[in-house]
Simulated scan of single mutants.
Amino acid sequence: MNTTVMRKDSPPDRATPSPPSDRTNRPASRGIRGTTGRVGLYAVLVVLAAVILLPFVWMVISSVKADRDVFTVPIQWIPTSYHWDNFVHIWTDIPLATYLGNSLILSVVITFLQVLTGSFAAYGFAKVRFPGRDVLFMGYIATIAVPWQAYMVPQYIIMQHLGLVNSRWSLILLQAFGAFGVFLMRQFYLTIPDELSEAARLDGLSEYGIWARIILPLSKPALASLALLTFVNTWNDYMGPFIYLTDNNLWTVQIGLRSFIGQFNAQYAMIMAGSVLSVLPILAIFLFGQRYFVRGIAASGMKG
């Protein structure tokens, strides 16, 4: 007699738990690495900023020292005595107000002319099609590579024959045009769609109207960048006023501070005090237009 043995189904084997995957740890590790990288980057930027600002800090500290304490070895970062009267005497020892006014006049006028001529010329190179446009633009930009010392003597001879030496007009006419400003504005204009100009032409607007009513309102960041760079370069210019301006009443602040340098000695503390006062307008203008300056430089580098 055969007996059938009924086998009960054995219960299924329980799945053994798998070890935790490395994927669960990746977000945390990435977050740690990202935080560490940012901290390291900020630390490097702080160190670089401190190195860059160190000469300015030394200038400010030296402006309230005595002349004999400016170039002491080792450097006295904390003066033994503070001479705040340096900022009072500098207004009476030299006509500093006249020098600052001359620098302001030249900087404002030259900045206005460079922004005007640079933006207008850049519009022609970027939005107007004519034969030889790109070749002419490359030739014009190539003049940036020519050092100023190579043609400063012919420029002086031209200004002398025109009778403009020892006048502001010599510096204004020589610096009213700049290839760098044309390049900067053209690079920004290339980011503006050509369809806007084409639509304006179809509506009967002239090229002057397109430039003034459409392109310029869209170019505020680039205009602010060019204005700031031109103002700073003109304000800090030394060689131009030194060559063309001989009248003391026409001197700029950079030339005026040279009055504290004598044949056998120099009033270094007064020079530092005047340098601090000359930096303040530049600092104020940069802080006021910093947002537009950064946007203009970033946008102008998109194409090229």
Score class of each variant (00 low, 15 high):
T3L: 13
V5Y: 00
A15C: 09
A15Y: 12
P17R: 02
P20G: 13
P20S: 09
R26V: 15
P27W: 08
S29F: 15
R33Y: 04
R33H: 04
T35W: 11
T36V: 15
T36M: 12
T36N: 08
G37L: 15
G40E: 09
A43K: 03
V46T: 12
V46G: 09
L48D: 08
A49D: 12
A49P: 14
L54V: 13
L54G: 03
P55E: 12
F56S: 06
F56Q: 08
V60G: 14
I61Y: 05
S63T: 12
V64Y: 07
K65I: 09
D67M: 07
D67F: 00
D69Q: 04
Q76P: 10
P79R: 04
T80F: 12
Y82K: 05
H83Q: 15
F87Q: 03
F87M: 06
V88I: 08
W91C: 00
T92E: 03
G101L: 10
G101S: 10
G101D: 08
N102T: 03
S103R: 00
S103W: 09
L104F: 14
I105M: 10
S107L: 05
V109H: 05
L116E: 07
T117L: 15
G118T: 02
S119F: 10
G124T: 08
F125P: 06
A126C: 00
V128N: 00
V128H: 02
D134M: 05
L136H: 11
F137S: 13
M138F: 06
I141H: 09
A142H: 02
A142T: 12
I144M: 08
I144D: 02
Q149E: 09
A150Q: 03
M152Q: 13
Q155M: 11
Y156W: 11
G163N: 01
L164R: 03
V165I: 15
G178P: 01
F180W: 04
F180T: 01
V182T: 12
F183M: 15
L184D: 00
Q187P: 07
T191P: 01
T191M: 06
P193V: 07
D194Y: 03
D194I: 09
L196D: 04
S197Y: 10
L202G: 06
D203R: 00
L205S: 12
I210P: 05
A212E: 02
R213P: 03
I214V: 11
I214T: 01
I215C: 00
I215Y: 00
P217K: 00
S219E: 00
S219I: 01
K220S: 11
L223T: 01
L226G: 13
L228C: 06
L229I: 14
T230K: 00
N233P: 10
N236K: 09
D237P: 09
Y238S: 06
G240D: 01
P241Y: 08
Y244N: 08
Y244W: 13
N249D: 10
V253N: 04
Q254P: 04
G256K: 14
L257I: 15
L257C: 05
F260D: 03
F260Q: 12
Q263C: 08
F264N: 14
A266M: 13
I271N: 00
S275D: 10
V276T: 12
V279N: 05
L283E: 03
L283G: 02
A284F: 02
G289V: 07
R291K: 15
F293G: 07
G296Q: 02
S300D: 02
K303L: 08
G304D: 07
